[in-house]
């Protein structure tokens, strides 16, 4: 079972800051402690959701990390070693070339643990599809073995293994190549969070598909729609991982308020049961944990994680995010052509 951890300073409950309100929670050190604890517990990735691209108009939010998330990710990457780092970035807030560089850099800095959660532009799916294609092609600007570092011959790279994109589409014109080497995972993992829309983008380009539902029924519906869209796009079920948001509430459920995400309440064993049931019912590969408070995050790690381990459900292996998710490393298009010959 894949496990993700959605990182916030105080927890996802809007009032969590009142229980443990301290400006220290906003610091890098505090966020790093959460990430390190998730890594130690065996989580596969942390998610920096960045309020899905919403920028504050006039007030601060206690569920937002007070950092630009792709840079926070690079910083966290140097102080962790196994956990993946999936970062939201909106297609209307970055030029494709800049975004491709940022995430290729993250993949290098994290030694293969980077992922991009595509935050789409509302009602502009054709632009987003082109955007993701451009970014993906920029990540293939260099073949894996393009860099020779041949000091004696004075040859830094093999010019035949550099690929100029020369993209000219309806929305973007980008020459390329990217000025970052092909990254350790070949490409960072592309995550997608379909909801009101975005099914086509998720089906065509997503690898880590993050579902959000308020009820189990809605989750099963969403998973069904997602898998149908995937089939319509001609992609294999094994090419993606389907992961749902849950808010775990261990023990006494009094005082919690329903938020937009699915709450699972009860004893650690009951929560583990519910996770297994949901995974089976909706064909899920795993869950992203949205801890309502940091205390609840700590209890999840101490009480639910061991229960999941006892059931043999955890134990992801590998040092890259792809390895942990069990996703294949994408071959460079030139290597694929070579194999086909």
């Amino acid at each position: 079972m894949i496990l993700g951890y959605s990182l916030t300073p105080f927890g996802h409950h809007p009032a969590a800051w009142q229980q443990a309100g301290d400006t220290q929670n906003l610091s890098f050190g505090s966020l790093l402690r959460q990430a390190a604890s998730a890594e130690e517990a065996g989580f596969d990735f942390i998610l920096l959701a960045d309020r899905l691209g919403q920028r504050p108009a006039q007030d601060l939010s206690s569920v937002a990390v007070p950092f630009e998330p792709s840079l926070l990710a690079s910083a966290l990457a140097t102080r962790t070693s196994r956990i993946g780092i999936v970062v939201a970035a909106a297609t209307r807030q970055h030029e494709p070339y800049n975004l491709a560089r940022r995430f290729a850099s993250l993949d290098w800095i994290s030694k293969g643990r980077g992922g991009w959660l595509v935050v789409p532009t509302p009602e502009d799916e054709t632009r987003d599809l082109e955007y993701v294609d451009v970014v993906s092609a920029l990540w293939d600007s260099w073949e894996d073995d393009a860099f020779l570092y041949d000091k004696a011959a004075g040859r830094f790279f093999d010019p035949a293994k550099m690929h100029v994109l020369n993209h000219n589409g309806p929305h973007f014109s980008v020459r390329g190549p990217l000025n970052v080497n092909r990254s350790p995972q070949g490409k960072p993992v592309v995550a997608s969070m379909p909801g009101d829309g975005g099914w086509e983008l998720a089906a065509k380009a997503g690898e880590l598909l993050l579902l959000q539902a308020k009820t189990p029924e809605e989750l099963v519906d969403q998973a069904g729609i997602m898998l149908q869209a995937l089939q319509a796009a001609g992609r294999d079920r094994q090419a993606v991982r389907l992961v749902a948001d849950i808010v775990p509430v261990i023990g006494d459920t009094a005082g919690t308020q329903p938020t937009a995400a699915l709450h699972l309440a009860g004893t650690p064993a009951a929560i583990a049961d519910r996770m297994q049931e949901l995974a089976a019912a909706a064909s899920l590969d795993g869950f992203t944990i949205l801890p309502p408070t940091l205390d609840m995050a700590a209890r999840f790690v101490l009480e639910v994680v061991p229960e999941l381990k006892r059931r043999g459900l955890l134990g992801g292996q590998g040092t890259t995010l792809r390895e942990r998710l069990g996703l294949a490393r994408p071959a460079h298009p030139a290597a694929r052509r070579e194999t086909a010959r």
Binding site: S105, V180, N181
Partner: peptide, 18 residues
């Protein structure tokens, strides 16, 4: 370009954040 060593590098803000 292939004879010089400066074609690729980290994006600077990512690098300095690290």
């Amino acid at each position: 370009a292939s004879q010089a060593g400066r074609s690729t590098s980290f994006e600077p803000l990512s690098l300095l954040a690290a």
